[in-house]
Design a protein around this nucleic acid. Sequence first.
DNA 1: TCACTGCCTAGACAGATGTCAAATTAGAAG
DNA 2: CTTCTAATTTGACATCTGTCTAGGCAGTGA
Lengths: 121, 121
Amino acid sequence: MSKSSELPIVPADGCCAPLSGPPLTEDEAAELAKVFKALSDPVRLRLLNMIASVPGGEACVCDLTGPFELTGPTISHHLKVLRQAGLIEGERRGTWVYYRAVPGALTRLSGLFALPSLAPA
Amino acid sequence: MSKSSELPIVPADGCCAPLSGPPLTEDEAAELAKVFKALSDPVRLRLLNMIASVPGGEACVCDLTGPFELTGPTISHHLKVLRQAGLIEGERRGTWVYYRAVPGALTRLSGLFALPSLAPA
DNA sequence: TCACTGCCTAGACAGATGTCAAATTAGAAG
DNA sequence: CTTCTAATTTGACATCTGTCTAGGCAGTGA
C-alpha cells in the first residue's frame, strides 16, 4: 500500500498558479488534468466526500462499499484512482484498510480558481 | 450560440458545500462530476487558462487554435465541452467567435476544497 | 451572385474507462 | 494448518472520449 509510485500529481509544492493567471505549460496542464480526471466520476466524488467528512478523518473501506450499488472490486478501483491522484492515502490496520484525505491536496486545488483581480500580481 | 440548453452544471447558486463538508447527494455528485470531467483534459485546461487569462477577458477562437497541434474541429469540440459545463461562453461577432470565462463558475469551484477545520461550522 | 474564410457539425475509428466475475493476497481466529 | 473474511488484482466486456476527415453554415467582400 502507498507505494512510492503513486504520488506525483497535485501541482506540487509551488502550486497556486490560478487558472485565470499565467499561462499553463503543457506539463502543468497534463498533471492538473490527472487530478481533475480523478474527480470526474460521481462515485469517486462521493467517496472522497465521505472520507474527508468523517469525524475521525479516517474511513474504513468496509463502510464505503455499502452506500453504493457497486461491487467491492469497483470501489477498490475508484479508491486506487483517488490514491494515485494524491487525493487520499490508505493504511492497513489488521483486517481492515482505512483511508483519509490528503489535506494539502484539497487546499492546493482551491487556489486554482482564484480570480486574478482578487490576487495581487 | 449559447443556447439555453447548455447551462446546468456548476453546483448552482447555493453552492459551497465543500468536499470535506456535508455528504454529497447522488445528484450533486453527478453534476459536479460533469464540471470536473470538463476540466480533466490537458487541452481544455489550457484553453480555459488562455481564455481566462487574456487581458480583455475575451479570446478569439482563431487565436486558440494555433498553440495546439490539433485540427480546428477538435478545438471546437473542446470549447463545446467547456461551454456545456458552464465554464465559458461564446459569442459570434462578424466573422469571428469570441469566448470568455464565466466568472462565477470558477469562484464557485474554489469553495469546494475548503477544509472543515478552517471553515466555521 | 460568386468565391473565400472562420467555425461548427456529422460520422468514423482507436484507445481509455467503468463495471463485473473470478482469482489472489493479508490478516484473524479456530 | 485450515478456514474465514476484507480488500485488491486480473482479465474481459460494453461504453465513452479524443481525434481526424469530410461536409455544412455564416459572414465578408468583389
